[in-house]
Amino acid sequence: MSQRAALAGVVAALGASTTYVAALVYELAVGGRGDPYLIVRDVHFGYYHRVALAVWVGLVAGLLAHMHLDTDARRVRVETQLTRHTLWIVGLLAIVSFVCP
């Protein structure tokens, strides 16, 4: 497996995670928080919808990254940036998940 493909996989994973949380925030921003007592099980497919959307966007982000990372210089730059910022991104996603449950 090439390093380029591995790095594209990392971008896909972080892209999917970020997309999921962004979709969550978007849903709350547009629709507001519904009354939890009115939850109807048959129409509550928000979770599956967000997961599917996140997987698709993650895959597209991974493919784009794979196309973009065609030189060693680019690969090293992205790798360094991701190593430096990954834990911050995770922390941010966790905080947003708590604020927008």
């Binding site: 497996m1 591995a6 790095l7 990392v10 896909a12 994973a13 999917a16 995670s17 993650g58 995770v90």
Partner: peptide, 11 residues
């Protein structure tokens, strides 16, 4: 996502 995405670079 983090766990699965880490597998390839880990190897």
């Amino acid at each position: 996502c983090l766990c699965l995405g880490a597998v390839l670079p880990a190897l």
